[in-house]
């Protein structure tokens, strides 16, 4: 199952400030919904721990993340892979920054590829849950960057 979402929002900060925030896992990751912790291996590799709850299916997911594209102050792109509830998830999340007179437009795009039994058991719930969580993340980002 693939969930693809995208959008954009504007903040008053300069692209450099936005980029520094988005490319720093220590700042960025805690904004993820149900974030429970992280360990950073190096500047571009870190492991996230997030709690996953889809109806009665609950568990902890470990996501191995990599900041695979970083072009200050234009672009940051993460790729990750993890396992959850008998399945696997691959995610990509990218941010393209565009300066404006008043700040920066953040164009974001995310893709989650979900593999495994979860798609059968909770397939119908995943997309709305994904949308809700992405919206929470974006709202958190906006708030943090304002």
């Amino acid at each position: 199952m693939a969930i693809r979402l995208s959008g954009e929002f504007e903040v008053r900060r300069k692209p450099e400030e936005v980029y520094d925030f988005l490319s720093d896992p220590q700042k960025f990751a805690p904004l993820l919904p149900d974030y429970r912790g992280m360990t950073q291996q190096d500047a571009t590799h870190f492991t996230l721990r997030v709690e996953v709850g889809i109806s009665y299916i609950k568990g902890m997911a470990e996501m191995k993340m990599h900041l695979e594209e970083a072009e200050r102050p234009k672009r940051a792109r993460y790729r990750g892979q993890g396992s959850v509830a008998g399945g696997n998830v691959s995610v990509t999340a990218g941010f393209d920054l565009r300066p404006t007179d008043s700040g920066t437009v953040v164009a974001w795009a995310g893709e989650s590829l979900i593999f495994g039994r979860l798609t059968s058991i909770a397939g119908g719930l995943l997309e709305p849950l994904g949308k809700k969580n992405v919206q929470r993340l974006i709202d958190g980002l906006r708030a943090a960057l304002e």
């Binding site: 590829l113 979900i114 593999f115 039994r117 798609t119 059968s120 397939g123």
Partner: peptide, 9 residues
């Protein structure tokens, strides 16, 4: 589905 997930297991 297109990823090869069997949705009717």
């Amino acid at each position: 589905d297109s990823l090869g997930n069997m949705l009717t297991s």
